[in-house]
Design a protein around this nucleic acid. Sequence first.
DNA 1: GTGAAAGCGCTAACAG
DNA 2: CTGTTAGCGCTTTCAC
Lengths: 339, 339
Amino acid sequence: MRERPKIKDIAERAGVSVATVSRALSDSPLVTAETRQRILDLARELNYRPNVSARSLRTRKSMSVLLVVRDVGNPFYLDILKGVEATAREAGYSVLMGNTESDPAREIEYFNMLRDGHADGMILMTGKLPPAGGNWTGTLNRLAVVVALEIIEGAGLPHVQVDNFGAAREAVEHLISIGHRRIAHISGPLPELMSLHRREGYREAMRNAGLDVPEAYEVRGDFLLESGQECCRKLFTLPEPPTALFVANDEMAYGAAYELRRMGRDVPGDVSVVGFDDLYLSKAFYPPLTTVSQPRAEIGHAAMELLLKILSGAEIDCDEPIVLPTVLHIRGSTAPPQE
Amino acid sequence: MRERPKIKDIAERAGVSVATVSRALSDSPLVTAETRQRILDLARELNYRPNVSARSLRTRKSMSVLLVVRDVGNPFYLDILKGVEATAREAGYSVLMGNTESDPAREIEYFNMLRDGHADGMILMTGKLPPAGGNWTGTLNRLAVVVALEIIEGAGLPHVQVDNFGAAREAVEHLISIGHRRIAHISGPLPELMSLHRREGYREAMRNAGLDVPEAYEVRGDFLLESGQECCRKLFTLPEPPTALFVANDEMAYGAAYELRRMGRDVPGDVSVVGFDDLYLSKAFYPPLTTVSQPRAEIGHAAMELLLKILSGAEIDCDEPIVLPTVLHIRGSTAPPQE
DNA sequence: GTGAAAGCGCTAACAG
DNA sequence: CTGTTAGCGCTTTCAC
């Protein structure tokens, strides 16, 4: 058989109709065990594989989902992707990668891919809806979209997230508990909700401990290494620099630690540093970073499960986000302040 | 318009046939500029998007490619993925993620996805062909497959790679040039070609310098952090431990550096370490790792370009791999040996 | 330049 | 239980 066999080829050889073959192949109970077996054997023999386009066209299902992130190059997404991929594959779905790089045109494009049957559903990790350019607006509620990691308010979409506020508070409480009082915060880009929540957690912990937060102790970064360095430099030109840093993500925390070293300050001897994310290989950094670990694989898994539920037609309560637990890993970058 | 508009809807409103609409939409010259414009306007107004399944079924093209890796969780692939994605999107292709985790069943599965029309081509980064279980064998030459990063011998497939041998040699030559003579090597898993080539580069550099390589100076790892630690431990129980390490990838290099620190040896004061890959954030490590940087985005880009060429029907010379240049980044983890 | 019509390969009524 | 048949939405001959 030179050409790819189709259902018709099997039907002819088996001496049955295409309908029967289709049924046998999809495990319909409407086929005798014997016929089914004959067909199955034949299919294997011919090395038959159903044509996905034909099937999709007919069933109106693509059996693939779209995973959309801001930057595929960011290692943070890796384990999430892994979790999504594993769960998707188990359910027979393929995963299409989407990368917006915050380009509105691309954001729209990926939504369009849902409409044109490229994918059945989408896991959105960009933290925002595309501008209302394409008039997919209004169709939104009909599309199967799960927001993971980030939060999009007011769209009525289901969410899978972590308690950024609580996790940040816990991280800062750790610093307080080992004796720090002058604790500064390098935040993520504002007014993104994730950054906001982490900053609120920081403020709450400080407030609860009766500690002061001078305005200059809150510096705004953008989650990238360089901004961690820069923010750190700013903080240590202050007349009364902090003894500890709560940084909104690991990448900036590395930047800060790197900068501290350059300035001749020891971590954690002179300054303690706490990050957020628990990046791949973060335990290999020196000193190993104390950080909030997010259950990334589980986030991916949960988001995909939720999406599958939606795709199966179940009603989802979008008002109650799924919140996954974080863990504060206390490692070598934090220590009590010097006398 | 509640339902998704199809070509027929446009045709009716425009008072033309579906054929004309199809032609106008695909920029065929067989349509008057005026009709075309009317149709285009209408399409935009209705927010029309062609159904991909129908189109794929008809054209026998899925306009997507499969990117298959051993482990999506490995950050090494990130920039490659990014390069592939960007190039693919520009050409109108989507990228499907494939993750084998070295499971033969999955390896076969992804090849099957080519046959069933799920994807038009594949970029394979697993370094091996699936076991000849599915009888896709023989069909191989008909499938559009590009091998990137790794090497698969004898399959007649086009390759995009780096000169692992030369890059490794250069790295070791650097160590030699700053005065090291007792240089050990932590290799990747054998007999994988990539590991083999890097080891050969190491040997060649040593040989050229007239340096001895005691058998115990070559330890075999598996590219993971822990194995870097382990191998390092072995090396430093030798009666005459090395003063420098050439490690086959960054992840193990971090493991080794971590272990050296634990053993109270300073990097680079007591021991110099050179890695391979130049991982994301590697400059933030302490000390910043001297390492061979691979042009990952370019590898992704080149592989996708090559695949596009194949998909466009061009004949490819599979005997001449595309070899991309590496750069040795000399950073803080290497220094002349102590007196 | 445009239209009619024939499928691409599959599934799902509907009949038997 | 099995077969016949009508599409899914699109592209592409082949006529006109």
